[in-house]
């Protein structure tokens, strides 16, 4: 009886693994077959001349260039906003916090990491309406609001990765500079942070990847179907994941649909490179930041 059970468990495990691999392969092959034909300069620049577009002399209407630029600025801005706060919080948790504080903040960040992104999007949207009604008409859902919301979304990852990579440092690294008379701050700035850099940057890459792929937050906070390259922080913008979502439900001709598949490949490429880079830098630490509370 027991033997049968063991055999069954082994058989089922292999079958399930096979099913999973099969699903993933079908998914990827389908995407490649559909997406590769549209791959090329026209996917990005449409009918405009690439060089002119890059110099800012021409605008793109039937390519994904504006969406790529939008995503780039969005990601950059979110990283700039989230990085200092996240790293500082991480340093506090690792180096200064008392055990009680550590526990308290730890649970709060876990909760933040678990909050669905659409809820954070809703928060950003409400914030933009609040700013619009109480401060200036110029506010509304826009690039800045989206970046702020995305920063909130990814702060836990940066905090976690900073904290964990600092705590991971062996105690001889930790004590040498102090023994030589360095202050606590000097020790952190010149010894601990440089040594924990790979962990911190790994967290940053994860955060960037998350910002690049998230659709729910930007859906509520200012992304639109047509906007061109964003001109200011307060302007609406286009973004790759939203482009894909938009095309999926309302492509108007086969060419647009095939652009959609092309955009999927581009986004998949960007995100998988970012994630694999993060894992390459610090394999265990990074996915634990993302997949562990």
């Amino acid at each position: 009886m027991q033997e049968v059970l063991e055999k069954l468990a082994v058989f089922l495990s292999w079958t399930m693994t096979l099913v999973l691999c099969l699903c993933l392969s079908i998914f990827l092959i389908y995407l490649l077959i559909k997406g590769l034909p549209s791959f090329g300069a026209e996917l990005i620049f449409g009918k405009a001349e690439p060089l002119k577009v890059l110099l800012g002399q021409a605008r793109v209407f039937d390519g994904i260039f504006p969406a790529m630029v939008g995503t780039f600025f969005l990601v950059l801005l979110s990283a700039v906003l989230a990085l200092p706060v996240g790293v500082c919080s991480g340093i506090y948790l690792a180096e200064y916090a008392s055990p009680v504080m550590k526990k308290l903040f730890g649970s709060l960040f876990d909760i933040l990491a678990g909050i669905p992104s659409i809820v954070i999007g809703l928060f950003g949207f409400s914030l933009s309406i609040f700013l619009h009604n109480h401060f200036s008409d110029r506010f509304g859902p826009c690039l800045l609001i989206s970046a702020l919301s995305l920063a909130v979304l990814v702060i836990p990852y940066i905090v976690r990765s900073t904290q964990m990579s600092l705590e991971e440092l062996p105690s001889d690294i930790r004590r040498t500079a102090l023994a030589l008379g360095a202050t606590r701050l000097q020790n952190i700035a010149y010894v601990l942070i440089p040594n924990a850099l790979s962990g911190i940057s790994s967290g940053l890459f994860l955060a960037i990847g998350r910002c690049a792929e998230d659709t729910a937050v930007i859906l509520l906070t200012g992304v639109v179907a047509t906007a061109g390259v964003p001109s200011s922080l307060l302007s609406q913008y286009e973004a790759l994941p939203f482009y894909i979502y938009y095309i999926s439900s309302q492509y108007s001709n086969p060419a647009e649909l095939s652009n959609g598949y092309g955009a999927c490949l581009v986004l998949l490429g960007i995100c998988s490179v970012l994630f694999m880079f993060a894992y390459g830098l610090k394999k265990h630490l990074s996915y634990r930041t993302l997949y562990r509370v």
Binding site: Q57, R59, H132, N133, G140, P141, T226, A227, G228, Q236
Partner: peptide, 27 residues
Amino acid sequence: MTRYKDIVVTVAGGGSGLGIKQVGEGL
């Protein structure tokens, strides 16, 4: 936008109800 590089026109959907509300609120 093709002709005038300093003008940006952003187009979003959302439905008539949203359009009326958003223009009313000045968004």
